[in-house]
């Protein structure tokens, strides 16, 4: 493929993603931020984002698929444990979770 067509792919994909953002702006300009419709869209966003995260952990398409489910779940539990133990510090939770996954993979390995 020529370089031109690669550029075309990148720019067309950017435009196609921007369409959703622009539609979002157009809808946002027309709705009442205190109304039921706004609250519903917020709930839809939360359900989608939570689903995406849950999918990344439970049904990963990345290299994580090679790590067994119990190990992934244990690392999530350790992360939440550390997070609440250290007064809801994100860094503590993320570090504990990441390190324990690496350690479990090495140890069980």
């Amino acid at each position: 493929m020529a370089a031109d067509s690669f550029w075309l792919i990148v720019l067309a994909c950017a435009a196609a993603t921007f369409v959703w953002r622009a539609l979002g702006v157009l809808v946002a300009r027309r709705i009442d931020a205190n109304g039921a419709f706004f609250r519903w869209v917020t709930c839809v966003s939360y359900a989608m984002v939570a689903g995406l995260i849950f999918r990344m952990i439970i049904l990963p398409e990345s290299d994580l698929a090679g790590v067994s489910l119990p190990v992934r779940i244990a690392a999530v539990a350790i992360a939440f444990g550390a997070y609440f133990l250290f007064k809801r510090r994100l860094v503590a939770g993320v570090l504990a979770g990441g390190v324990s996954l690496s350690a479990l993979v090495t140890w069980l390995g």
């Binding site: 979002g24 809808v27 706004f38 966003s45």
Partner: peptide, 10 residues
């Protein structure tokens, strides 16, 4: 997903 995300964020 950017559609509902932008609507709920703006």
């Amino acid at each position: 997903r950017f559609l509902p995300m932008v609507v709920s964020f703006m």
